[in-house]
Nucleic acid binder design. Structure first.
Lengths: 127, 127
DNA sequence: CTTGACGACGTTCAATTGAACGCTAAAATG
DNA sequence: CATTTTAGCGTTCAATTGAACGTCGTCAAG
């Protein structure tokens, strides 16, 4: 599998919107963007085109309108993005990052419990 | 606090080496890089200069040689980097990322325990 | 049937980033 | 002393990315 060219920041931003909507036109994506982002219609168009060219999105026609949808499993892409980040910033070791994440910002009690459950499951699966 | 311009990927890579060494010359940083990275001496020089210009590193002379050291608390920078990533990729919610991190790659048993301890401490502090 | 809104597409353009050249000066080596 | 090495610094250069134009086609309303 030739790995797709990397996602630029803005590209990921738009891809996530498409993922959330399932499928979307340029205009739909534009409307989902926070107003203060202030991107032009044509700009969104360009980014979606690039995402298609890079192999992340699939495009099809509805009337004369382009409809974009995910071509690669979003979770897969997310996994790659996380992995890359982990390698670059923490030498690929997840633990230090996890430590940072759960101590630094204030997790709610429910989130802590949620975390506990995940941890328990993890132990289960380990046995 | 005037926020510094963002770190490019290669810049972060080199900054981390300087952090690890405490202080370092161009050559030292170059030698710490994995051989296969294949960067030129001049290239490392350029990146360190940029890091200085962006306010991340401090430079001083030792003889005619530049010695670079951290100007901003590494942990602080790391925190910013993580925060930025979190916002961009997970809408700022740490939990999904943590889930991903602890399920996807194979954590060792010790690491799981370590994690458990952190979690316990967290509950303590919460009370 | 003309006007205008909407959209696609090719193109462009500036900023940033990755990577290095080339020149010069100081140090070390023969 | 002459030469090679080692640095610094300014500069350059190509690719990538962020962002948008301008043109052209199409559809819908007057």
């Amino acid at each position: 599998m030739p790995r797709r060219p990397p996602l630029a920041k803005s590209e990921l931003e738009l891809a996530r919107i498409v993922w959330r909507l399932g499928e979307a036109t340029v205009r739909q994506v534009l409307e989902e963007l926070p107003r203060e982002r202030g991107l032009d219609f044509a700009t969104v168009q360009t980014y979606l085109r690039r995402l298609e060219a890079k192999g992340y999105l699939r495009v099809s026609q509805r009337g004369r309108t382009n409809v974009y949808s995910s071509r690669v499993e979003p979770d897969r892409v997310l996994g790659e993005v996380v992995r890359d980040f982990l390698d670059r910033v923490f030498d690929g070791r997840p633990l230090p990052l996890v430590q940072q994440l759960i101590t630094d910002p204030d997790l709610s009690d429910e989130e802590i419990d949620e975390l506990q459950r995940t941890l328990d499951q993890l132990r289960e699966r380990k046995k």
